[in-house]
Amino acid sequence: MNRKYAVRSVRLCTKDCLCLYVCPTGATDTENSVIDISRCIGCGDCADVCPSGAISMVPFVYPEQQPKVEKVVAAMDTLLKSKAQQERIAAALPGRLAKALEMSNRIMAEDIVRESGYMLPQSGNSRAFLQSLLDEPQPHKFPRDAVETLLELLA
C-alpha cells in the first residue's frame, strides 16, 4: 500500500476542532499548526473528521505521470516558445498592463509546459532536465548546489 501522511492547510484550518481529539499519536496538536510528520502513522482519521477540508493525506511516493504523445509535446512546445516570447516582450515594456501581460503569459506558459510532460517534479523528465543543467556549461553564478540538492531530495 502507498503510505501517506497528513498535511494541514493553515489557510483553511479554523483551529477549533476534532482533529486534535481523534489523532492516535498527538501528531495534529502542535504549537505551530504544522502536523508532526514524524509522529503521523497515516491513519487518515484527522482528514475524515475535519469539517473544513483542511487536511490532505499526501502520498510519500507519487504515481508515474501520464505519458505524453510526441506530437502533443511538439505542439505544446511551440506554444510555450510563443508565450515565453510574449513574456519577454511584456517584461521589457513599462506600466501595469505590461506587468499583467507578463504575468499572464508566465502562468499560461507554466500550464503548457506542465502538460507537455513536466507535471511531476519527481518524474524522469524533470530529473533529466535537472541533470542536463549540470551537464551543460553554465554561467559562473549558476546555483549548482540548488540543482544537486533537488536531485537528492526528489530521488
Binding site: 505524453k68 504523445v69 506530437k71 502533443v72 505542439a75 511551440t78 500550464d111 502538460e115
Partner: peptide
C-alpha cells in the same frame, strides 16, 4: 495545432490547459 494534437491523442489534460 495544439488543440488538434491533444484531440487526436485524447489528451484531456493538455486539452484543459489549452
Amino acid at each position: 495545432l495544439a488543440n488538434d494534437a491533444a484531440a487526436e491523442a485524447k489528451d484531456r489534460g493538455a486539452k484543459r490547459a489549452l
